[in-house]
Design a protein around this nucleic acid. Structure first.
Lengths: 268, 268
DNA sequence: CTGAGGTAAGTAAGCACTTACTTTTATCAC
DNA sequence: GTGATAAAAGTAAGTGCTTACTTACCTCAG
């Protein structure tokens, strides 16, 4: 059951720890399921670093500490391995999915859902959006592989991108959009297309994570150095003021009042 | 000057129009500069579609209608070709570039700058952000290659991503941040970190373009089908309401005179 | 008749994937 | 407990194809 330890000092010739093997020495022999899972994990890491096309099966084998043929014993083709990654990433984080495709629960949305729905029941708008933003950012930060893998997948035209959208983004748009519509009916929010609100908010959050991950890596973080909590709070504050109904009519834009002064012959 | 046409009907054997050659038959003989530029353009398109690693020199040659050896007569290595692309995409539009095709748009920030700065001088916040959003989205839509190339570049760790950030994003953060800070000093905007505002706003805009380009392509556009103008208007509305200074009693009057009321505990 | 634009046909290295073979280990009659 | 055994985990050394890049040659404008 537990990982190896049965024969660590054994033969010794299996995997020289001198180079490579950054992930796991993985020296000993493994049960098929273990090995398969390990290969998937290694492949996820490498694909997220270099893309599907940019990663060779040889590299995966080396990083996993086995020969290339092992990869092809567990996965018929490289595409097959990619498919396994989709299964893995689509359900791995729920913890309730060893490998079976039976999970219908999308991990990302599921992680988001609980705290957000709880806040929704209380009608606490601030908590809703703050929890949403924070959960998303935390997810991106805890699992930076995921964003990269997703972007590679979208750019390279693989299925993961579409699956992610259907299982996560679409769900989010639906249930957040529904909430916003409900709050509008109650007069809490002004009349904007709820989907535009979702797009604007999740866009700010996702873009923030993406820029952090691609251009402004973690320790230095020189472009915009704020905690996820601060970011969630500020983004939420902007959005809530931006869509709340009782807001003071915004600003000089309402120039129909100011007929007197500077009417620059603008458009109607 | 003009593209070929000198010997289209000539030999006939050069480029069979039966397959490939989606871009340009490019049959005849070209001057070196012409050919070089054409190769760069073709390569930009292919790299943006499949990434640097995912595009072969053979494909580039075929799409350009020449033999592979021609690529390597003009560019020592594939990396060299990539470097030429950087020049092309990063400065081709400034006009200050070796082989700048004077025809195309100015670079990103330059395109944004003119309308936005004009609105800034008028102090028309709405126009500032709307013009910014609209110019960005229009740029992304007119040149969808660019976003894809940029993302590939960032993911694959090429220089273009860094150069783009330094030459465009950083500049935008600076000069929009400065504007916001100025408006805060005048009491028009509440006290938020200007960089957070820039991140939130450009994030929403960029994310919108990215989702449109990767998940919701143009003709159908089923996830969120709005024009760039509408999107710019809505995003701007949300942002401006979101960061406008608190006006407890709605005071549409010029705020710079009214030192008394507003000015909450803002300065450090 | 020279030199620049262009090509066909390479080359060595790298790719996804196989084949033929060698351990290791769980199992079960004894 | 043994030890024969079958199945599975593992490997070394390929296979044929593709890749970035070269070499040797051609062709035609000036």
């Amino acid at each position: 059951m537990s990982r190896a330890t049965t024969r660590d000092g054994g033969a010794g010739a299996a995997a020289p720890p001198s180079q490579a093997a950054q992930t796991a020495p993985a020296g000993g022999r493994m049960a098929a399921d273990e090995r398969r899972l390990q290969i998937v994990r290694v492949a996820v890491r490498l694909f997220s670093e270099r893309g599907f096309r940019g990663t060779t099966t040889k590299e995966i084998a080396q990083a996993a500490g086995v020969s290339e043929a092992i990869i092809f014993r567990h996965f018929a083709t490289k595409d097959d391995l990619y498919a396994a990654i989709i299964d893995y990433k689509a359900c791995a984080r729920t913890g309730a999915c060893p490998f079976a495709p039976e999970t219908e629960q999308p991990p990302f949305v599921e992680a988001v859902r609980r705290p957000v729905e709880e806040a929704m029941r209380r009608g606490d708008d601030r908590a809703v959006f703050e929890a949403l933003a924070l959960t998303m950012m935390q997810h991106h930060q805890d699992d930076p592989e995921f964003l990269r893998l997703l972007m590679f997948s979208a750019l390279e035209g693989h299925q993961l991108a579409q699956i992610f959208w259907d299982k996560n983004a679409r769900v989010l748009y639906d249930f957040l959009g529904t909430y916003i519509r409900e709050r509008q009916r109650r007069g809490a929010f002004r009349d904007v297309d709820p989907l535009v609100v979702v797009r604007a908010f999740t866009g700010g959050v996702t873009h923030h994570s993406l820029v952090n991950s691609l251009w402004d890596p973690d320790p230095a973080r020189r472009i915009l150095h704020i905690t996820n909590e601060e970011a969630a709070r500020e983004f939420t504050e902007i959005l809530l003021r931006g869509i709340s109904a009782d807001a003071p009519a915004v600003k000089p834009a309402r120039e129909r009042k100011r007929t007197a002064a500077v009417k620059k012959g603008k458009k109607k």
